[in-house]
C-alpha cells in the first residue's frame, strides 16, 4: 500500500497538522519509505494469535470510588494560553 499527496493531505487533516502544499509530495515519499518497510509484517503467520495490547498479565485494577483531588482551579489554568474569569478561552467551536 502506498499514499499519494491527496492521502497525505487527508491524514494531515485527520491529525490536525498544517502541511504546506509543496510539502505534500515529499512527505508522501517519506511516508511510503516507512510504510513499504512496515509491509514485511505481512510475511508473519499470525493465524489464531490474539492481538497484544499490554505486556501485563494482570486485570486492570479498579480504585475506590472517592474524590482524591480537586479545588485546584488556578493550578489547572496556570499554563493556559488564554483565560478569563477562571475559564479557558478558546476560539468559537459551534457556529
Amino acid at each position: 500500500m502506498s499514499v499519494d499527496a491527496k492521502t497525505v493531505r487527508k491524514i494531515a487533516h485527520l491529525a490536525r497538522l498544517e502541511v504546506a502544499e509543496e510539502r505534500l509530495a515529499p512527505l508522501a515519499d517519506e511516508l511510503n519509505g516507512i510504510l513499504h518497510w512496515i509491509e514485511q509484517l505481512g510475511e508473519v503467520d499470525v493465524e489464531g494469535v490474539a492481538p497484544m495490547a499490554s505486556v501485563e498479565d494482570v486485570p486492570t485494577p479498579t480504585r475506590e470510588d472517592k474524590i482524591t483531588d480537586g479545588n485546584i482551579r488556578d493550578d489547572v489554568l496556570a499554563n493556559a494560553p488564554k483565560t478569563e474569569e477562571g475559564f479557558f478561552v478558546m476560539p468559537k467551536a459551534v457556529e
Binding site: L41, V49, P51, M52
Partner: peptide
C-alpha cells in the same frame, strides 16, 4: 491489529 499480533509472537 496485525502489528499487535506480531507483538504477541515476539513476546
Amino acid at each position: 491489529i496485525r502489528a499487535q499480533k506480531v507483538r504477541a509472537r515476539i513476546a
